[in-house]
């Protein structure tokens, strides 16, 4: 068996055993949601080469849509999740269409400005609960078959969702479409000269990334049972960049590892050091950028390639 296969097998076995060994499942679910968010974000940054500063808009808007439909409208869990994803896809199409015409820093600035707009809408709109956010989002059940009130049941659903998204992103990257994305990232002018309308490919990559980010946000709303402004805040957009860079852009597992690290630090340090947790995460980030530019997984892969 290949070492990678063994590694995946061990990781999956460990993930399956989580509820049995007494790790707090809610924490693990939150971690997995952010891991999905980071993987979705990396589809754009790592595999398309576009740095968005506004991905919290998709994560947060989908979370709000799902949360509101499930509470105020009494929608079932799956339809509410689906609607959240549709909201993120629509928003992603609009933001992407405006942003992809620009490159580099201008692209980043447009995504940031539009995400700020989404934040203000969430702050002011009557259905988002303003500063309080939405509380008491019910978990409901999986199509009326599997009740999700128990943390263990919910955990396995989230784990399944994570594995599903991970495989989907791998497939996207290793698809005919992914091959064109790679070509565009390598040499845009050359791709154009071969007849590829690169804006269309970039837009599709943006929409896919936004849609999957929305799924992560919507699922997080269901898992934790609340949605707050912090989901849609600029800081959340920054955090997902940090997670991705920490773990390794353009690697499949890196963003998940980065998300795990950041969420774990936040969880355990905030009790100990309070507000200083941001400073510590910042310091870890700086250290990582200085010591291993490829991110944790990126460096490990490079090490293996050298041997």
């Amino acid at each position: 068996m290949r070492p990678a296969t063994i590694g995946y097998g061990l990781a999956l076995a460990a993930a399956l055993a989580v509820p049995a060994v007494g790790v707090y499942p809610v924490f693990m679910m939150k971690l997995l949601c952010f891991a999905m968010f980071a993987c979705a974000f990396n589809l754009l940054l790592g595999f398309t080469g576009m740095l968005s500063f506004g991905h919290a808009a998709f994560f947060g808007a989908a979370a709000y849509a799902t949360g509101w439909l499930a509470t105020a409208r009494g929608w079932g869990t799956l339809p509410a999740l689906g609607a959240g994803v549709v909201v993120a896809a629509t928003l992603g199409t609009a933001v992407g269409a405006l942003a992809i015409r620009r490159r580099g820093i201008y692209f980043a600035m447009i995504t940031m400005a539009l995400a700020q707009l989404v934040y203000f809408v969430c702050l002011e709109a009557p259905f988002t609960g303003g500063e309080n956010g939405l509380q008491g989002v019910p978990r409901g059940s999986l199509a009326g078959l599997v009740p999700l009130r128990s943390d263990v049941a919910m955990y396995y659903v989230v784990l399944g969702a994570f594995v599903g998204m991970y495989l989907l992103i791998r497939r996207i990257v290793h698809s005919p479409f992914g091959q064109v994305l790679k070509a565009i990232r390598e040499n845009e002018a050359r791709a154009v000269s071969l007849g590829y309308e690169i804006d269309r490919y970039k837009l599709l990559a943006f929409v896919l990334s936004a849609t999957l980010s929305g799924f992560a946000g919507a699922l997080k709303a269901v898992v934790l049972g609340f949605v707050t402004l912090s989901d849609v805040l600029q800081a959340n957009s920054g955090e997902v960049i940090l997670m991705t860079l920490l773990g390794g852009t353009g690697t499949f597992l890196g963003p998940a590892v980065g998300a795990g690290l950041v969420v774990t630090l936040q969880e355990y340090l905030s009790d100990l050091v309070g507000g200083w947790v941001t400073v510590i995460i910042g310091a870890v980030f700086v250290a990582c950028v200085l010591l291993f530019r490829r991110g944790i997984v990126g460096e490990l892969l490079a090490l293996r390639a050298r041997r």
């Binding site: 497939r171 290793h174 698809s175 005919p176 479409f177 992914g178 091959q179």
Partner: peptide, 15 residues
């Protein structure tokens, strides 16, 4: 060659 196959937007297909 790929553009002519017509699957260049198919992100769900294996490479």
């Amino acid at each position: 060659l790929q553009r002519r196959v017509g699957t260049s937007f198919h992100f769900w297909r294996p490479a």
